[in-house]
């Protein structure tokens, strides 16, 4: 079995080969926070947060000019939206190997609903959230993450499931 892809190295080499001379400085921290579960999952309310540019067909969610230019931003979606209404227009996936046609492959809303039905988790929050990718780590850390935290608290989220694309 071949080892997993080192994307930091691969993207650096790829963009160097395309003539970009400046490597991106990825965020890196020595310290990592940790919060244990406060109660069993079966009694916990779960929030789903993604950076997959998930959208709802026919609904304008992205109303911030800066969102569309990799400058961050965030928006929320009703968690009871029918699965078939979700889609992703992201270009940040391996289009040669796979597709984003099944949102379950990157936005596990269907599986999470099953987990509520089976009693594996207590419930889902009323809203799910999308955080837009930002070149600026500061934008994410100082604006989008705090804003999403506030919404999670408003909704009583006790556990967070997070997915990129």
């Amino acid at each position: 079995m071949s080892s997993y892809v080192r994307y930091i190295d691969r993207t650096r080499d790829y963009y160097l080969s395309k003539g970009y001379d400046k490597s991106y400085q990825w965020a890196h921290f020595e310290e990592v926070p940790f919060t244990p579960l406060k109660k069993p999952l079966a009694e916990s309310r779960v929030v789903l947060i993604t950076t997959s540019d998930i959208g709802i067909k026919g609904v304008e969610l992205n109303n911030d000019e800066t969102m569309s230019v990799s400058m961050g931003g965030h928006y929320s979606m009703p968690a009871d939206t029918p699965i078939e209404d979700f889609y992703s227009a992201s270009h940040g996936f391996d289009r040669h190997a796979t597709t984003l046609e099944d949102v379950g492959a990157f936005f596990p809303i269907g599986r999470l609903r099953e987990a509520v039905e089976s009693g594996r988790i207590g419930s889902l929050t009323a809203r799910f959230h999308n955080v837009c990718t930002a070149y600026s780590q500061r934008r994410t850390r100082e604006q989008d993450a705090p804003a999403v935290l506030e919404r999670c608290r408003e909704d009583g989220a006790e556990v967070a499931v997070l997915t990129p694309v």
């Binding site: 999403v148 935290l149 006790e158 990129p164």
Partner: peptide
């Protein structure tokens, strides 16, 4: 988007949400 999602996870965790 992996970096962005990781930064959000860290922020929630640091503020009491596993």
């Amino acid at each position: 988007c992996h970096q962005t999602v990781s930064l959000v996870a860290r922020h929630l965790e640091a503020n009491g949400i596993p």
